[in-house]
Design a protein around this nucleic acid. Sequence first.
DNA 1: CGCATGTGGATTTTT
DNA 2: TCCACATGCG
Length: 703
Amino acid sequence: MHYEKELKRLNEYQKEAVLDESDACIVNANVGSGKTTVLISKIIYLHYAKDISYKDMIVLTFTNKAANEIKERLIASDDSIQLEELEGFGTFHSVALHLLKSILPVEKMEYTKDFVVIEPEEELDIAMRIIQEEKLKIKYKNRLIKRLEQATSIEKEEEKISRYDDDIFKLVQLLKEEKIKQNKMTFSDILKNANILLEDYKIEPKWIIIDEVQDSDKLQLDFIDKLKSMNTKLFAVGDPNQVIYSWRGSSLNVVYTLKHRYNARELSLPINYRSSSSILEAARCFQQNGDNLIGARETGNKIVVKNQYNPFNEACYLADKIKEIHNAGVPYKEIAIFYRLQNQSQVFEDVFLKNEIPFEVSMKKTIRDIPVLNWVIKLLRFCVNPNDFSSAIYVLSNKDYGDRMTEKAARKIVKEQNIIKSELLEKMYNFFNECSNITKSDEIYTYFEFDKYIRPTAATYKEDKESICTLLDIIMEYVKEKQMPFLNGLRNFINSSALYGVNILHKDISSDEDSVKLMTLHASKGLEFSYVFITGVNYGLIPLHTRDMEEEEEQRLFFVGITRAKDYLELSYYTNPDYQRVASGESRYIYMIPQKLIQNDKVKNESVNLQELKKQIQEAKTQGKKEEIAVVEAVNNKEEAEVDKSAEIPVVEGANQASIKKVRHKKYGTGKVLKEDDMMIEVEFENYGVKEFIKAFSELEFL
DNA sequence: CGCATGTGGATTTTT
DNA sequence: TCCACATGCG
C-alpha cells in the first residue's frame, strides 16, 4: 500500500500523530522534528487508509510558501492528484476567499461574486477620500490605520465614543459602506465576512488540518471554529516555542485555547534531526515551553562566540570567513547571516559586493512597491470591473503614468464616461470586447500602447517596460494554468492579486540560488542552514531594547535563530556598535549558554591595531562613502596579504622618481600617486579612479 | 508662527 | 526610556 511506505519512514512519535483518530489533536512539534513530513503523511494516510477525499479536507497554512510546499510534496508523492482537488488547501485567507467566491452567499452582505481584494494602503486611500468628501473631523490622521483598527474592534454601540472627540466611528461606518459599494474587501474582511456567512452555511469538511497553528490570531481561530462541525476532525501542528509574531495578533495561548475548546488530545514530536547536539544544548537554554528537545545527531562543533569591534569590521571578517568556508567545499547557500534589524544588512551588502561574494537579502516586495505595476494593476482592474471608478481615476490622474491629468479632471471624465477626452479610458472600456481572444502577453502591451503612457524619456522607462512585461507574462501563465477563458482568468487574477501577486516578482529567499542568505531573525523562521552567523548579540539589540514586556518573545526569537543551524553556529557582539541605545559588550543571552559549549575566539592583537587605525582614520576624516570603500580595500588587502605572504610587496622607501610616482595594484592596474604620508597613500588609477589605502597593507608595487 | 501639551512609537511582517 | 510629531492656543 502506498501509505505504508510513507509510515515506515517515521519515528514512533510521528507515527502516533499520523495514526491518531481523536476528534481533535494538537501536536507540539519541536524545531526540526519533521512537522511538515507528519502533516503530509497524515493527509496521505487519511486519503488512502481512511478513504477521505482531498476535497473533504481543509488544510490551512499562514503563508503561500508553506501552502505551496505542502501541495508540491503531495503531488510529488501521488501523481494522480488533480490540482482542483486541493482547493481547500491554502492559507487561511486564500481558503476563505475561495469559499466566498464559490460557495458562500456574499450577496447577503451586499457584495457580488466579482468583489476585489485590496491591500491595506488602498483602504487607507478610501478612508482619506471619505474624510475629505464628508468633511469629517479626524485627529491623528498619521496613525489612521491603527486608529481604524482599534475603532473597528469595538462592537458594542455604547462603547463607540471617540476618546479624541472626533468622527472616527462615523468614518468606520462610512468606510464599511463604501467598501461594499466599491465591492472591495481587505485581508481581514475576507476572514470576517467568511466567518459571518459560515454561521448559516456549513461547509462540514471531514478534516481540518492546520500548520504552524501557534501563529493563529483571533480571526483565524474564529475561522477554524466556524468551519468545524460536529463531524469534523481537527489536526493541528505547532510549536509554542516559536511564537515570534504576538505583536501581529498571535498569542502564546493558542495551543491551550484549542486544547480546551475542542478537548483535544495533545501529542508531541520531541526529536530534532536538524542540529548537532551542541547547538541543541545551547538552544535548550532558551526553550520556554513543552517537552525537552531530544537530539538525534553527534556532538558537533562548539558554538563560537566572537567579539567584533564594530559592524563594519565584522562584515570584513565574515567576508573572509565565508570565502574560507566556501573554499573548503561548502556551497554559499548553506551559509546564513542573521541580525535583529533590517538596516543591519547594509554593511554586509556593501562589503560582500566588494568582495564578490554572492548574496541575497530577504526583503518583502509587493506589486505596490513597484509604482508602474501598481498603475497597471489598477488599469486592468477597471477593464475587468467598469464600476471601479476610483481605479480609473487613479489611472488617469497618476503623476508618472497615463494621461497625468488632475484628479478633479479625471473624476469628471470618468463619471461622465467621456471617452473622447481620453484615449486611454476608451481603451479600458473597449478592452472587454476587443481582447477576449488574447493568447500572448505582448498583445496586451500593444493594445494599450503602454510605451505611450510610461514616458519613453524617463530614466525608469526600460525598467518599467520590463516590469510590465514580467507581470503580463505571469498573468498569461496563471490563466493558462487555471485553464480558463482569457477574460475570466484575468479577472480572477486581478481581483485577488493583492493576495497572490505579492511575492510573484521577487525570487524567494529560499530559492536554490547559490548565495549567502542575509535576513532578520524573524525571516529565518522555517529555514535551515549548515552555517549560521548571528550578529549583533549585544544587549539592546538582542534582546532589543523595548518596553520590557516582550522580553520573553525576544528570547524565543533567539531560540528560533539558534535552531536554524545544522552544523556550525557563531554568535558575535560588538565592542562599538554603531547603533543608538545599544550597549557595548555581549548580551546576557551569551552568558545563558554554558561555558563548556562555547569556544571563545579572541580577536588577534594585530587586528585590534588595524581596527584602532581605521577608527582614527574615520574620525579624522569627514565622513563619506568614499573613505569607507577605500578602507574596505585596505582591510581586504591586509587580509589577502595575510593569506599569501609571498605576494606581499613592501612599500619601497625613497623611490628615485622625483615628481610623479607610478604604482601597480593587483586588481586596479597602474595609477599615479596623488598623496602620501606615513600612514596613508592615495592613488588615481586609470580605470578605477581615486582610491585610498593604508600604506602598510596596500600591496602596491612601485614602478 | 511659536510654544506648550499630549500621544504613542521605537523593532519584527504575512495575508 | 526618549524622541518625533500632531494639535491647539495665543
